[in-house]
């Protein structure tokens, strides 16, 4: 059985959690379990966060959600540990976010970017996003606002890079 976080190592640590009449299980390798502070199988407080939508029994519509670009589903991902196409990262963003958080040092790319992508940063696009952000905050759509803020920051740092 493969570890559910890294999908690479053999899972040797097994946790289960009972919520109502449902039992969710998670199987991890030792290093991922340790990285998440899950060294004690009885300490399952973090499980919910960790599993996100992927393992904790997502709602039926999430399970059958399909990538519009390539037809890949969450069930495929659970089975293979690989995604179908680049657009899958957007399609399954909600489920992927906690996974990426658990796997990596940070949640945002700070490394280099393709020259073409850097060139694509236009001041108009930035202003447009800033307008959208203001609106989202006004309407208290905070999750969307946070996304917009991230996007603006990314564009700004890209603009800085291409200016060099």
């Amino acid at each position: 059985m493969r570890c559910e976080i890294c999908k690479t190592n053999e899972a040797t640590v097994h946790f289960s959690q009972v919520t109502g009449d449902k039992v969710s299980k998670i199987d991890l390798c030792e290093s991922c379990a340790k990285a998440k502070g899950l060294t004690d199988p009885n300490n399952i407080t973090m499980l919910g966060d960790l599993l996100g939508d992927f393992a904790a029994g997502p709602p039926a519509e999430a399970e059958s959600q399909r990538c519009p670009e390539c037809g890949f589903t969450q069930a495929n991902f659970k089975k293979q540990g690989r995604l179908g196409c680049a657009v899958c990262y957007e399609t399954f963003e909600t489920g992927l976010r906690p996974l990426l958080k658990a796997m990596h040092k940070g949640e945002r790319h700070v490394g280099k970017s393709p020259r073409k992508a850097r060139a694509r940063v236009s001041p108009e696009r930035l202003r447009e996003l800033e307008k959208e952000l203001a609106l989202a905050i006004k309407e208290e759509r905070f999750e969307h606002a946070a996304q917009l803020r991230d996007e603006i920051r990314a564009l700004e740092s890209k603009a800085r890079l291409s200016a060099r």
């Binding site: 890294c6 999908k7 690479t8 540990g81 690989r82 995604l83 196409c85 680049a86 990262y89 992927l96 996974l99 990426l100 796997m103 990596h104 945002r108 790319h109 490394g111 280099k112 970017s113 393709p114 073409k116 992508a117 991230d150 996007e151 990314a154 564009l155 890209k158």
Partner: peptide
Amino acid sequence: DYAFSPKLGYLTACPTNVGTGM
């Protein structure tokens, strides 16, 4: 034309490689 997102960097088949892909 590389698959790239400003937020997640270079997009890879396995999420363990996303970002720098390095």
